[in-house]
Amino acid sequence: MQNVGAQSNYQIGTLPAININKSLKNSWRLNFKWESRQLLKRNRPGIPGESGFDYILSDFALVLSKKVGLNNSIAAGYQIRLRENQLTHRSIQQFTIVKRYTGFRLAHRLASDQTYALGESTEFRLRYRIAAELPLNGEAVDPREFYFKVNNEYLNSFQGKDYDLEIRIVPVVGYVFTDNNKLEFGLNYRASSFLESQVRHSYWIAINWFLKI
């Protein structure tokens, strides 16, 4: 299916992720994340529209975190992105606060990362994410119950002399098998390229599996 000359700029795809966490001694934790992208439909201004199932990339990240207060953690890690046999490296630093209220939990994440790719100048990003989790039954998310989670993230990107902003809104419905085994399903919407002539909209079907071993 081709749609020549369409002006809208968007992509639609799937974004499955597996998140495996391991508690270590003295409030240390290790997080491994695998996330992959598959494109189903894409439209770019001036380029024929494309559709069909197209595997794009896989990310593998390992993050070590340490609890530094009742509600706060600091973390640092490294991610490798595999895209058409090309490797991209990324270092990650983050600080999180998780607040518990009657009836919901609220998390703030302040993070920075640096992306290194061959032949490109390093991309520096500064990002802030707020996430709210609400039980769909009772005042807390218990095992065998559903919850609703929404997060909103702002990513500032600096690369060479370029600056760009990306905004993400991710509403998902989650199910708790046990406190250490959760599955989430929803939308990962991203608006980027704000400083170019046309904003790019990305709609990813998100499937997140969180496991603690």
Partner: peptide, 10 residues
């Protein structure tokens, strides 16, 4: 004991 926060942090 707090509930697991992994899905809010990562």
């Amino acid at each position: 004991i707090f509930r697991n926060t992994d899905n809010l942090e990562f």
